[in-house]
Amino acid sequence: MKTFKKIKLILLIAVPVSLIGSSCVTTNKISNVTGALLWSENCIRCHNAPSPTDFTDIQWGKIGMHMKVRANLTDDETKKIVEFLQSAN
């Protein structure tokens, strides 16, 4: 029962905060989102977003594959983010 109480506590705090914060979100279809936006939205889920100039084109290709595995990014997201980082480098 203790476990369920804690789960409820976490959800009771976190879900309303998130819903309020996301209430102004425009529901872009993911397929229409640009690589630049995906870069800014997905990197910050775990860490600060790096600048495109922080790594070379070749390195971004490898980092993209690493992040696809580590963060379970979709194939489309990974391709768009890597293309953006390489084009803005």
């Binding site: 800014s40 939205e41 600060n48 977003a49 600048s51 100039t53 922080d54 790594f55």
Partner: peptide, 17 residues
């Protein structure tokens, strides 16, 4: 690790987030 000698992300405010 990051490539050195390039501009830092903190030079201007974070935008479009």
């Amino acid at each position: 690790d990051r490539k050195t000698g390039k501009k830092k992300i903190s030079k201007k405010p974070i935008e479009n987030i």
